[in-house]
């Protein structure tokens, strides 16, 4: 079960549910962030509590991340949406209303999926979501290139020697993803989501941003477009609000989704 081939890529998938899951339980799909992230950030924080509250939970590692395959190409937002669409097909989750929970880039993918399929989405929970507006791809690519500079092959080995197996592997994986795939080029080529498409997302959208986040401006851009938008700005937290305010997010999200 943990591996599902979707859109030609083997994806590591985890399904979580409490014993006695109801047939009409809401389906909640979690989408993590880019490069130094994988499904475990949601697994350790929100996914198990949401499953314990009665939801049918799906977590997966985006292509190139975690325990999923890392093909050399296919890192545009549209590829991520195609992967998600194919995964839902494979899991036979095409008829039930979907709740998407996205962190950072996962929020970008959630918004893009909802723009393409507004009728399939029951709600969106966006945590520190990047919103693909004009210039976003260049900004993301720039950030990744900075990370990549510190992760050249030699440095990754040094990391492993100095910090042990775990950090060494994380560095090596990130290095391979940034330097040996088309991710940076794909992000540079990303087109902004059409404003009228975003405005056509009529389901409830709940957003959480850290008060000190460097992407807080995305919240205002979303507020201007989305008809049913609720924003929480979490005090004294940064872009890592998922890790910095986990108990608050757990209470908020289990309340919203179940």
């Amino acid at each position: 079960m943990p591996d599902v081939v979707a859109n030609g890529v083997r994806l590591h998938v985890q399904r979580l549910a409490s014993p006695g899951l109801r047939e009409d339980a809401p389906v909640v799909v979690f989408l993590h962030g880019l490069v130094m992230d994988n499904l475990s950030s949601f697994y350790y924080t929100l996914a198990n509590p949401v499953a314990a509250a009665g939801a049918d939970v799906v977590l997966y590692d985006l292509r190139g991340h975690g325990l999923s395959d890392r093909p050399r190409t296919g890192y545009a937002v549209s590829d991520s949406v195609a992967d998600l669409t194919a995964l839902l097909d494979e899991l036979d989750l095409t008829d039930r209303p979907l709740h998407l929970v996205g962190n950072s880039y996962g929020g970008t993918v959630s918004l893009a999926f909802a723009t393409a399929n507004p009728e399939r989405v029951a709600s969106l929970v966006l945590i520190e979501a990047h919103f693909a507006i004009e210039g976003w791809g260049e900004q993301m690519a720039g950030t990744l290139t900075e990370i990549a500079f510190g992760l050249k092959d030699g440095d990754a080995r040094k990391w492993r020697d100095q910090h042990g197996r775990k950090l060494g592997r994380m560095a090596a994986n990130a290095n391979d993803l940034i330097n040996n795939t088309t991710m940076v080029d794909d992000l540079l080529a990303v087109k902004p989501l059409p404003a009228d498409g975003v405005a056509a997302i009529t389901c409830p959208v709940r957003a959480v941003y850290g008060e000190l986040s460097d992407v807080l401006h995305h919240a205002e851009a979303l507020r201007a477009l989305l008809p049913d938008f609720t924003l929480t700005i979490q005090p004294n937290t940064s872009h890592s609000v998922l890790m910095e305010a986990t108990p608050q997010l757990r209470a908020m999200i289990t309340g919203w989704l179940t």
Binding site: Q14, P19, L39, Y44
Partner: peptide, 20 residues
């Protein structure tokens, strides 16, 4: 030094082994 993603995989294997 189990990575978080490996711990997830371990829990999945244990779930498979012990069932409900």
């Amino acid at each position: 030094e189990v990575e978080s993603i490996e711990f997830v995989a371990l829990a999945a294997k244990l779930r498979e082994h012990y069932g409900e």
